[in-house]
Design a protein around this nucleic acid. Structure first.
Lengths: 301, 301
DNA sequence: CGTTCAATTTGTCCTAGACAATTATCGCGT
DNA sequence: ACGCGATAATTGTCTAGGACAAATTGAACG
């Protein structure tokens, strides 16, 4: 394995830090300090890219970049989650079972994981499977990812396999015209789809008609789609990684685009800290989803 | 529906044109000409965003931006595909059936589409279903999208429903340890997953063990994943929309990261015009996939 | 008619400054 | 001691134009 160097676009791709931020850090903090090629363009060595990715991960946990960059490399161990989580422990039996499932992922044993999950699904039924297995499991994966126990590719494997399970389960639900019609998608830049699938499963179980459009729909297209499908509700998902500050503005813009009769729901861990407004219903937990659906039905009966 | 304005970041999100390009076009061509807010920052009105998206779509079809921007709005009709395609017509019966399937999508009738596809899958078997139904259908969707017959959200609906069908079909295949072990993924910025799923279906049918990691894996992570899963082959997918010029460099970098014993395959319509090299096997058609697999087996027997 | 070379087009990168939004810190009143 | 508001530090994104290389087109020539 040689040591390739990365240009600034490659570093942006691999770290998620924008070119502007990379140049700004270099100017302000003196890190990173890439070499220059014959054209005077930045060449980042692999070890600096690695450090940048670590810093990004710690930032996503709530640390400040200024501190992180000043810290020497022993911050490698300073990755204890900063957000103090009260960590309401569930019934330990269930917890242990979930840990076992994640152990299978850590061992990269896709087949065993899928089989174990299928069994759980059959035992619990779809609703409890979503609420008691997939949701806490995904949350746990997020924690493991934050404290560095999960590699990126392990998280990807978990996501991919779990997506398949959920989609398969959803496809077995009865079809036919139902109400309300819910359009499920996310805005550009937001590509986490697991939350959408969980919501879809719950709504479909409750008799709603879900129109899954995948992720990354431009705002104007969401408006068109809502009209074409005569959607009663547009449901968006924002992951915790989505820049908080943009959410309120996005919802406001979308509210202006959508007909007044179309409800706008926004869910996912990204909306937890967003201020309430008249633009959209904010849904912070999976239970809220069902409550909000019930409220909608009451209002439209 | 009011007329919201978009800041430059929102336009980048919704059009896929980078901030640099938006500013450059304004400087060079005099379009777009956004208003300015109280901070002197650009505010793009909705109609200009709309025009930019149209221009972007025509560019993806092979037109040059300079010409497009100079053209007045009647280019709306000038969207006949520029790449002259010989269009080898298939047996018209099959063609008509495919058109019917797409008509269901155009009518936004998800349930009918899924049912029709399930029937086809049962009738054709998975391999022929992939090669004779999904592949040409996806190609056709691409053409419809290019000539403006398909809206973005219709293409999304097609993709989402088809993904589900494929994943479901794959999940019914027998499990267990098989060979070779193929790691399937794509690089960051590349999020088209249908091609990967088609390849996965074909390889799984041939007895390969597929490890699906979804899309958007950073290069260094692909290396780690290949090692952790002891992959024999790393297969990447590049869609036609992926910037051609970056592909060769990416493959070269990845080749340096991977152990020499791990094969590197690159497929998808994006690699069609990439020059051959020793870094990776280029796979331009689905048939090539099976041929390349056979060649690998011959070499490792 | 094909091929090579030059001209044009086009995207990305560069520097460096400004400002607004967020977060931290301090001081005050209860 | 603790909550709250005001100031201060931090940090990301925007703006401006200049430069250059990769890709494409067009022209000249064999």
């Amino acid at each position: 394995m040689n040591t390739p160097t990365f240009n600034i676009a490659a570093v942006e791709r691999d770290t998620g830090l924008s070119k502007d931020v990379l140049r700004m850090w270099e100017r302000r903090y003196g890190f990173p300090v890439p070499g220059r090629d014959s054209n005077g363009e930045r060449c980042y060595p692999a070890d600096q890219v690695e450090r940048l990715r670590l810093i990004k991960r710690l930032m996503d946990m709530g640390h400040r970049p200024g501190k992180l960059i000043a810290t020497p490399q022993e911050e490698l161990t300073a990755l204890s989650p900063r957000r103090s989580k009260p960590e309401v422990q569930e019934a330990s039996e269930n917890r242990d079972e979930l840990e076992e499932l994640l152990t299978l992922i850590k061992q990269h044993d896709a087949a065993a994981y899928q089989q174990a999950m299928q069994q759980r699904l059959a035992r619990q039924g779809l609703q409890r499977f979503v609420q008691d297995t997939i949701a806490p499991l995904t949350h746990r994966v997020g924690e493991y990812w934050e404290d560095g126990s999960f590699e990126v590719f392990e998280e990807h494997l978990y996501t991919e396999l779990t997506k398949r399970l959920l989609r398969q389960a959803i496809s077995t639900l009865p079809g036919g015209p139902r109400a309300p019609r819910v359009l499920l998608t996310s805005v550009p830049e937001e590509l986490h789809v697991l939350g959408l699938l969980m919501v879809e499963a719950l709504l479909a179980l409750e008799g709603a008609e879900c129109i899954p459009l995948g992720t990354q729909m431009p705002l104007l297209e969401i408006g068109r789609a809502a009209q074409a499908h005569q959607a009663d509700i547009v449901a968006l998902s924002f992951s915790g990684a989505f820049p908080q500050r943009q959410i309120a503005g996005l919802l406001q813009q979308l509210r202006m685009i959508l007909p007044a009769t179309t409800a706008l729901w926004a869910g996912g861990s990204g909306v937890a800290r967003v201020a309430r407004s008249d633009d959209a219903e904010l849904i912070s937990t999976l239970d809220d989803t069902l409550a909000t659906l019930a409220a909608w039905r009451l209002q439209h009966s």
